[in-house]
Write a protein that binds this DNA or RNA. Structure first.
Lengths: 134, 134
DNA sequence: ATAGATGCAAAAGCTTTGCACAAGG
DNA sequence: CCTTGTGCAAAGCTTTTGCATCTAT
C-alpha cells in the first residue's frame, strides 16, 4: 500500500491484486470476480467491488473509465495509453512510443486500424477550486 | 439526418434535438429527459434513450462516454475535446487551441486546474479486421 | 480488543426491451 | 397503408449498501 492508512492486507485483497497483476486483459469488476472465485469460491462480488475501489485509491492498480459504461481495471498502476477495439471492445495497451502523439502518428506502430481517439483533460474548475479554499 | 435511412422526424425526436442544441452542459440521458419533459410531459424515458442512440448513430449529436459511468450527450456533433471537473463532475468544452496538445500545454488557456488527462485510441484490432473480411 | 473487512442479500442506479397502440411518410 | 416510433412497465446489468459476523493488527 503506497498511501498510509489503516488498510489491512486480507487474503481477499491479496488474491484480487495477484489475479489482476497476472493478466493484461483489463478485466471488469465482474471478470475479476470470476477470476478470484476460482481460488476463493466464497468471495462475494461486493468484496471485489470494494477492494478494486480501495486498491485504485491507494495507487496499487489503475481504474480505467474510458469509452464504455463498465469500468475496467489494470494491474499496472503507471499511466499508459490504451487502444480499444471498436468491434470486440477489448482493451489493449498502446505501444510505448505512442504517448503524447496523436492517432495518425501511430501508423506503423501497431496493426490496429486506427479510426480516431478520445482525449479528456482531468482537472478542477475554478468554481470548485475557489470553493475548496473556503 | 445525415445518414440515409427510414428515419422519421417525430415531434419527440425534434424536441430532443432542439433541447440538446440549446445547451452546452452535456446532459446525461436522464437530464435530457427532464429538459424535454418540460415541453412534452408525456414523453417516456425509453423514448429519450432510443432517440439519443439514433441521433448519435446518424451523426446529429455526439455521444460522450469518457470518464464516468453514465453517458453524456453533446448537441454539437463535431469532435472537440472536453474538460471534466474532478470535483463536481461537470463536463466543459476545452478551449479550441487545445487540440492535439497535451495537458501542460493547456496552462494559460483555461482557469481549470489541470491534473492530468485521459487519452484513448479508437480502432479495429487485426483479429477483428481479418474476421470482418471473411 | 477493536477498527476494518467480509459475505449475503437487498436496494439502487442506469439502460434496454416487449408489447399494444399511435402516427409519419 | 405499412413501417417506424411511442408510452408504459418490466426486466437486465452493474454497482452500492446495510448488517451481523469475522479477522488482521
Amino acid at each position: 500500500m503506497k498511501k498510509s492508512s489503516n488498510l489491512r492486507m486480507t487474503r481477499q485483497r491479496q488474491v484480487i491484486l495477484e489475479e489482476l497483476r497476472n493478466v493484461t486483459s483489463h478485466p471488469s469488476a465482474d471478470e475479476v470476480y470470476e477470476m478470484v472465485r476460482k481460488r476463493m469460491p466464497r468471495i462475494s462480488l461486493g468484496t471485489v467491488y470494494r477492494n478494486l475501489e480501495i486498491l485504485a485509491e491507494c495507487g496499487e492498480i489503475q481504474k480505467l473509465e474510458l469509452g464504455c459504461s463498465l469500468k475496467r481495471f489494470d494491474g499496472v498502476a503507471d499511466e499508459h495509453y490504451h487502444i480499444r477495439c471498436l468491434h470486440c471492445d477489448r482493451l489493449f495497451d498502446a505501444p510505448p512510443g505512442s504517448r503524447i502523439r496523436i492517432s495518425h502518428q501511430l501508423k506503423g506502430c501497431t496493426d490496429f486500424k486506427i479510426i480516431g481517439h478520445r482525449f479528456e483533460f482531468i482537472g478542477i474548475c475554478s468554481a470548485c477550486y475557489d470553493q475548496s479554499l473556503s
